[in-house]
Amino acid sequence: MHPTNISRRRLLGASAALGLGSAGILNTAGAQPAWPSKAIRFVVPFAPGGSSDVVARSTAAELTKFLGQSVFVDNKPGAAGNIAMADVAHADDQHTLILGHIGTLAVNPYIFPKLPYDPVKDFQAVSLLAKVPSLYVVHPDVPAKNLTEFIAYAKSKPGKLSYGSAGNGSAGHLAFEYLKMTAGIFMLHVPYRGTGPQLTDLLSGRLDAAAVGASAILQHIKAGKLRCIATGSSRRLAQLPDVPTVAEQGFPGFEMTQWYGLQAPANLSPANLEKLSAATMKAVKSPSSMERLGADAAEAIGNTPQQYAQFIAVEQKRWKVVVERAKIKPD
């Protein structure tokens, strides 16, 4: 073969190799790193224990499987959830999430004159995880077997009966104020610093009634230490099949549930949000997750970001009215 042809072939081959190498360099430079690339911090704005922990830890365990990276729960209580919400609102590492809640997203905007976060602008809705029904309970000494009898009893003693909550603006406070507003009764509100102290007084009879998340009081109801007169759920609970809902007892459409969702900081990229949303829906609907949630009377949801965002907007409108009428103020 002529030397010129050999040189030409070598030159073409070298050029082709250089071209491929350059393309490889460009592709590598333009490629985005796989997400998640490290462990994800899942912040819970409440102390350990209760429904929030059950929902968060169940979801975290399943997300770890679907995302291929560890998802760990970080409890960060304080200031009605505002401290944790502000922390995550300003997170910029793409690996921090937070448990959304009826209080932090739909109530705090109306009871605090100023928040260190914007519930809509600072976060992206990922998915509604679960609803936990509020149970309306009374101490056994209260002569009422159902909601109808309780309302009649409360109306016969206006302002003389008391109900407790885990604090001003808590889910239990909202639940009972919503019932009071709907049924037209007047009762004294006694706020506590947490569900534990509240239950102590309720079980001892120092309180007449309360509205508490199902997971915290099912054991006391089954033991006969408290009487459930109604559930705030849209349908009867499997754990309490003989207890009718509030709606069944004369108030159609009434529903009071604590709800928990997943929020991501506003700067999470669209592609990562899409991946997280798909994984979350699978996580919530997985058999093991539904079993864990069902044991605490929680209803697994797992919807799209759009559906969850619409749900939050509706809840904000509903609770704004309740907060304003009840004149609820932060502790």
Rank of each mutant, 00 (worst) to 15 (best):
I98N: 04
V323H: 02
F150S: 05
Q69Y: 06
K131L: 12
M187E: 15
R236W: 06
P197D: 03
S162M: 14
Q263D: 15
T304K: 08
F112T: 03
K285G: 04
N82E: 13
G49C: 03
I185H: 00
Q124V: 11
A210H: 11
L218F: 12
Q310L: 08
L188H: 12
L174E: 09
I185L: 07
A154N: 10
M187D: 06
R292G: 01
D87F: 13
A61G: 03
G172W: 04
A183N: 07
I151G: 05
I221G: 09
A17D: 05
S15I: 14
S134Y: 09
P45T: 08
I102H: 03
R193K: 13
A183F: 07
F150C: 04
A31Y: 08
V137D: 03
K145I: 04
I151Y: 00
A16K: 00
E315N: 13
A238Y: 05
P133D: 06
G13K: 03
A279Y: 00
P330F: 11
R193N: 15
S22L: 15
T59W: 03
L268S: 08
G167A: 05
R41F: 07
V71G: 06
N27H: 12
R292I: 13
P270Y: 00
G50S: 05
L99F: 05
G172M: 03
N27S: 14
D296R: 11
G302A: 04
G261R: 11
L105S: 12
A210M: 09
G24T: 09
K114N: 12
T280L: 08
V321E: 15
L26D: 10
H139R: 10
E291W: 10
G172I: 03
